[in-house]
């Protein structure tokens, strides 16, 4: 296994171009090192992204907040501007793993793994985050919907890397993140949920994690709630419109996940409607 730590984007682009297929990008390593330990992966080359200037920065302009590929979950959880504008993202980031893991693992890694149970995905989907995928001489900006293509699968090509996460401004404070897991500390989600009320028109947005191969907005339930309101009976009816196809695994049975997802939707929307 070879280890390289490029110091510029140019060097990185060159490496990706030449050896894209056989290399693995390393930022936090909290997933990659486990996979290597279990023999699930044995990359010939590891390219450490942490040497490139600016990759660990959070910046903003009038249109969006931009998060670099090496910005850790802990940095996001503690970042004032993010906490002000996207509090649910700070909350979701804080719920990932343990402090030690959050001190290493970047948000970009949570996104690129594209796990259906990734805690930050429902929130990112809700906030309409975009990801910038770069490649020598080319880059594209995708919505989360276009980026996430399946469980553990994304639109990222072997010669590309995620170079930036964009959160469109203004953010929204009326967003809640909820997580149901087997224990309170350091656990993967059995069900996660982000729900919010957006903009002057008070539009409901809802996304559920760990209950479908791809984390996406629950548009049918959203439309129903936007049309009918947030009374108790509406919430219960909206639950029947949830698009869920959970699996049964060690973190929960499929039917249990469905039930919990529905209860979380109701409980969270009840909290939110007070803000509407």
């Amino acid at each position: 296994m070879e280890y390289l730590k490029p110091v510029s984007r140019k060097e990185l682009h060159l490496l990706l171009k030449k050896k894209g297929k056989n290399l693995r990008l390393l930022a936090g390593g909290t997933d990659l090192l486990v996979r290597i330990r279990h023999g699930k992966e044995s990359p010939a080359l590891i390219v450490d992204l942490k040497g490139i200037r600016g990759f660990d920065k959070i910046s903003s302009n009038k249109k969006f907040i931009s998060i670099g590929p090496c910005v850790t979950l802990q940095a996001i959880a503690e970042h004032d501007e993010i906490r002000r504008n996207f509090p649910a993202l700070a909350e979701a980031s804080r719920s990932v793993g343990s402090w030690q893991i959050r001190n290493r693992a970047p948000l970009a890694g949570n996104i690129c793994n594209a796990s259906p149970a990734a805690d930050t995905l429902p929130v990112l989907v809700l906030y309409d985050a975009r990801v910038k995928l770069s490649h020598s001489g080319r880059r594209r900006i995708l919505s989360m919907k276009r980026f996430l293509t399946g469980p553990g699968k994304s639109a990222l090509r072997p010669d590309e890397y995620l170079s930036e996460i964009r959160l469109p401004l203004p953010g929204e404070k009326r967003v809640l993140f909820e997580k149901f897991s087997r224990r309170k500390g350091l656990d993967l989600s059995t069900v996660s949920l982000a729900a919010g009320i957006f903009g002057r028109r008070n539009r409901v947005r809802l996304a559920i994690g760990a209950c479908a191969p791809i984390v996406k907005r629950q548009t049918e339930a959203e439309d129903f709630l936007n049309e009918h309101g947030l009374q108790d009976k509406d919430l219960e009816l909206a639950c029947s419109l949830l698009q869920l196809s959970p699996i049964t695994d060690l973190r929960g049975k499929a039917a249990f996940r469905r039930h919990i997802a529905a209860r979380l939707v109701v409980a969270t929307m009840k909290k939110l409607r007070e803000d509407r």
Binding site: G29, L33, I46, Q100, N103
Partner: peptide, 13 residues
């Protein structure tokens, strides 16, 4: 300055 798992860091890093 940050608490990390040393099993999740490569010595090369």
């Amino acid at each position: 300055g940050k608490a990390v798992h040393s099993c999740m860091v490569l010595a090369a890093e």
